[in-house]
Design a protein around this nucleic acid. Structure first.
Lengths: 192, 192, 192, 192
DNA sequence: TCATAAGCGAGACGGTACGTCGTGTCTTACG
DNA sequence: CGTAAGACACGACGTACCGTCTCGCTTATGA
């Protein structure tokens, strides 16, 4: 007379996506195998295919699931503090999800659905967050009227991505600080 | 008095790498198949494997081959012109090789050899080129003494990559100009 | 209340083995290819390899399957009739399975498992059958007490094999009759 | 006007054929590889292919070469002695060339050239030898007028082949003696 | 005496088959 | 019913041989 919950249901789903992240970290996107994911999760392949029809969608789901707990907009009362907080959260995110993002990059150009998913579930959020920070600075009178914020917002993320995924240089607190103090903040404030 | 190539040797090699670029553009890294490359080049699989032991090394070779004709250092006599020329050459490169680079990104984190190859054959060259531009500007007295050139050089490439590979926004002349005029040049000159 | 076969299981198996016989007849053992068998049966290679791990075992299985419906012991009430019946069944078997047996011969010396399989699944049965015929003849008082039946039983099969597989001479009813009347029967009866 | 010997010519040829026998003995016909033969003989593949255009012809050549020193017709003055000598030489031959013959058997049915080569270079010789023995016995008055010599001559070889190549039973002096004393000689002499 | 041609070892080449593994679909048996 | 398990047709993996083909190198005259 007990209610039978849909066996595992959403919990099982999260479990599977967690396994996807693990496998991605260990082997990379190209060598990730749906069979391996199912095996490690002690699931049948059908249970995976029923939910996500392809490797790309599976990995996107894992990615979206992992970034869905969006960081709260920081509000330190000062542009520099807000920017540093944003950069720090990105640094942490890259440490956790660098592999996932790297794998997705290879697909984005050949998969419009994936491109849209990343754009809407990830980029847009980051952009929004940073623009809010700029808006608050504008309201406080900190922001230079000439700052190209639509370009400026992505300088920080872009450099972090570039170093993490392409050039292989370290991505850490010190880098975040240099980016803010030597590039983003001077441009935003309109002075060097 | 003609040089006798070792039975098609280097010529065949370039031919194969050209096919790799074609296939990459059409299908992306993940779905690139050595069998498909061999078939399209009317080569036996062994002919491919003899030269490049894995898909990753094959694609790296295609990439290195495609970028090996390095752009000459531009010298317009003015920092802005030099930076614009650098950005323009990058824009063109991304149009030609965006897919290849995207594919490589997914592997870099899991393949130290590949990371090194990209670093040495690509990143280092771009970095050198840009730093030379900064040095000439310094010699001309254009460059601010406080500019963090070691970070600054990669702002342009990073944003271009970010937009081309991740956010999917357009990468064109206008973007190159905005990057130079709104971000890189102000920081380099030390004024807004 | 019907027996549910395991998804095509045994039926598919017999189908595959039939294809093996066809291919053997057309091309011979050396040129038989597992890929060709799978293709002709519209099966994946895995479906073949799952059941038989090597070409030799596959061919043995096809052979055993083809001879598994053992001929009934003939009982004509007279030694000559029994022997003729045995020879005739052999003649037919050689017509059907000569190629298969020929292929196996090349492997028997280098494959103990195969040797045992042929010995137990084929030779032993033929031997048993013939010795029963001799026993009945003995019971009837037809058989010479000095007949070396352990050697004699294989004279017929040996000559048929020799002609079918080695010397290429015809193997037919007339040969069977000559073998019985000129060799085996005289020795068995103890008179010429 | 001397004939130019093809460098190393016949000697190298015999050497290669010797290697073929070795490889056959070790691996069997099906797994014999022209590449392996060439490698072991430190020869280029071309050197092998120049002389023998296929595996079957190569092996036939090795076989013919190995049996080309035909045994002299024994003449012990008595049918039993002659037959024993013939059988003994066959027993030895099977020990040396069983593998080669086994391999050939698998091809004979699908290769008319091979069939003819074996027939002419091997079977015919054996047959001739044995019939001569029977003729001498006839001349001496030993042979029954009713003996079917055309069939009888191959009883011995057939049983030896059958046991060596198919049933795997031992082939030795004792077997040779039993064959002569219990089968061939009684039939030949027309008494039991 | 020397080029010169042939045989040679070596091995690259375009292919085919190997035996393994992953794909995405489907079926079975269980709880 | 949703699931774990895994068979299935398919096709790519990376390796090994196929039979053809060029390479240089030797070697042995016959110009």
């Amino acid at each position: 007379m007990s209610v039978t919950p849909l066996r595992g249901g959403p919990a099982r789903e999260a479990e599977l996506l967690g396994v996807v992240l693990d496998v991605l970290r260990e082997t990379g996107y190209d060598r990730l195998t749906i069979e391996a994911v199912a095996a490690r999760a002690k699931a049948g392949k059908h249970t995976v295919y029923r939910r996500w029809p392809s490797k790309a969608e599976l990995v996107v789901a894992a990615f979206v699931n992992a970034v869905s707990d969006r960081p709260v907009v920081p509000d330190t009362g000062e542009l520099r503090g807000d920017l540093l907080a944003l950069m720090e959260s990105l640094v942490g995110e890259l440490a956790r999800l660098g592999d996932v993002i790297a794998g997705l990059v290879g697909e984005i150009l050949h998969n419009a659905d994936l491109a849209r998913a990343v754009q809407q579930n990830y980029i847009a959020g980051r952009r929004r967050l940073t623009l809010e920070v700029f808006e608050r600075a504008w309201a406080r009178g900190e922001l230079s009227r000439s700052a190209d914020t639509d370009l400026l917002w992505q300088v920080g993320p872009a450099v972090l991505f570039f170093r993490a995924l392409v050039s292989g240089e370290p991505v850490d607190h010190e880098l975040a600080r240099r980016l803010v103090d030597h590039i983003v903040l001077p441009i935003a404030l309109g002075r060097r």
